[in-house]
Write a protein that binds this DNA or RNA. Structure first.
Length: 461
DNA sequence: TGAAATGTTGGGGCG
DNA sequence: ACGCCCCAACATTTC
């Protein structure tokens, strides 16, 4: 029997339930990736993320070749492509990893009606369907979701990568396209091997300090694994299991330091994947009906200033430039910039959601939407509307010396630390010495935070 | 996974 | 010695 392994966001050979199922049932497995124009040309697509995906496909292709197989790449509507390939290669089964987004579920349902599609769970550790309250309804609050999640047994162990794969007969193959844009490949080299390297590095060092340092924008305190999790170059199970090697892993522990904080982040990921699965309309509108008609200002010039890092608030500008230049942004900075756009500038969170999707290597519909709705206060278990981040205080707390700011906003390099988060307060002679004239070399704040805060509170009320 | 406004307390300066 | 004021430090409430 021949089967197709339809690769979507599971670019890995190890711990891949869909691949394992295919190999168990079929003598020949055809690894297939479909370039779907509806995804690649969507308004939420990102040249940087596509470049990362293609680089990941090249890495996967290399691994498959080393195992005696190959990667077949084709373009078009998945149903049509799969139809053609099934006929051409005489494949009688298709195996893939289940996904949660409305787009993916729609697509898979269409395919499954016509073709023998077998979906395996692997995107999350616990599938969204099984996590329900006692009354059968899905969770909408993180903490009880977290408790239920942690109470579930982890079944099965990690699936090792297969040894030699069955060889393929020649098939029509586009090959992996060249990356559409220059990607910051040195910061995030794509592929399963790199993901494993990072995981080992993280679980043997930074994870110990993760509880305290993950919020510090000036330190290397995060895992840096999000782009790899996004495309399944690393499985969530691998990410959670690896905490064993950190030596203090306990599924029910509340005091195991960094590993526990790390597990919480993985559970946030599963929470928002479950939210999108159970409430697909969150992609189109606020989860909370009362907050679907906020009187946004939506000033296009202010939005552009935010996007380009010209707001006059150093932490906001540093973060937005980091995103533009690297395709990644520190998690604390994501909350600060999202709060600034929605609350200080009163721009619809949908605008920010789309912009982040267009730039983030790890851009994932579920996590990104969840994060934006959390900040805007419109989502499940969201921050209350009156919780407005103060960009100055956040900067002083999570970038105390201004190292992060100076890294991404070079015009502030010589500004003394005393003024690094409030450069507009520099006396003229200090500005001169720092070679930074406010209003010329670096912008005056585009809004007064105190006034903006009052304005947003009124608008939300 | 905030921050500002408001309230309370207690020590020290000073008449 | 005493009352009064000021204000920092901390706690509570409110947005």
């Amino acid at each position: 029997m021949k089967a197709i392994w339809w690769i979507r966001r599971d670019l890995r050979l190890s711990d891949n339930p869909a691949l394992a199922a295919a190999l168990e049932r079929a003598e020949t497995v055809i690894p297939l990736f479909i370039l779907d124009p509806r995804l690649l040309d969507s308004p939420h697509a990102s040249p940087k993320r596509t470049a990362f995906l293609f680089a990941g496909l090249r890495a996967l292709e290399d691994s498959l070749r080393q195992q005696g197989s190959a990667l077949v790449v084709r373009q078009g509507d998945p149903l049509t492509v799969l139809h053609t390939l099934c006929k051409e290669a005489e494949a009688s089964e298709i195996f893939a990893e289940a996904d949660v987004s409305p787009f993916a579920r729609n697509r898979d349902e269409r395919v499954g009606r016509d073709l023998p599609l077998n979906l395996s769970s692997g995107l999350t550790i616990h599938p969204p369907e099984v996590l329900r309250k006692a009354d059968g309804r899905p969770y909408t609050v993180y903490t009880p979701f977290n408790h239920m999640w942690r109470s579930l047994p982890f079944h099965g162990s990690l699936i090792p990568a297969p040894g030699r794969l069955p060889p393929l007969l020649p098939l029509t193959n586009l090959g992996v396209p060249d990356s559409p844009a220059h990607s910051p490949d040195d910061l995030f080299p794509a592929g399963e091997a790199e993901a494993q390297r990072r995981l080992v590095k993280f679980t043997t060092s930074a994870i110990q300090r993760y509880a305290n340092e993950r919020d510090r924008m000036d330190l290397d305190g995060t895992s840096g694994l999000s782009p790899y999790l996004r495309f399944g170059m690393l499985s969530a199970r691998q990410a959670a299991w690896a905490t064993h090697t950190a030596g203090v892993y306990s599924i029910n522990a509340s005091t195991s330091g960094g590993t526990d904080a790390w597990l919480n982040e993985l559970i946030w990921r599963e929470f928002y994947l479950a939210i999108l699965y159970h409430f697909p309309h969150v992609r189109r509108m606020a989860f909370r009906p009362a907050l679907r008609s906020i009187a946004w200002r939506n000033d296009p010039d202010e939005f552009t200033a935010w996007a380009e890092g010209r707001t006059g608030y150093p932490v906001v500008d540093a973060a937005m430039r980091q995103l533009q230049q690297t395709g990644w942004m520190h998690n604390r900075a994501r909350m600060i910039t999202a709060s600034f756009l929605t609350k200080d500038l009163l721009v619809d969170w949908h605008w920010g959601e789309r912009y982040f999707m267009q730039h983030l290597l790890d851009g994932d519909p579920a996590s990104n939407n969840g994060g934006w709705q959390w900040t805007a206060g419109t989502g499940t278990d969201a921050a209350p509307y009156f919780r407005v981040f103060n960009p100055v205080l956040q900067g002083m707390k999570y970038d105390p010396q201004g190292t992060y700011v100076r890294c991404w906003v070079p015009e502030l390099t010589a500004v003394p630390s005393e003024f690094i988060h409030t450069p507009w307060k520099m006396p003229i002679d200090v500005q001169r010495r720092a070679c930074c004239a406010i209003g010329k070399d670096y912008p005056t704040p585009i809004v007064d935070h105190t006034l903006a805060r009052q304005r947003v509170l009124a608008a939300y009320r």
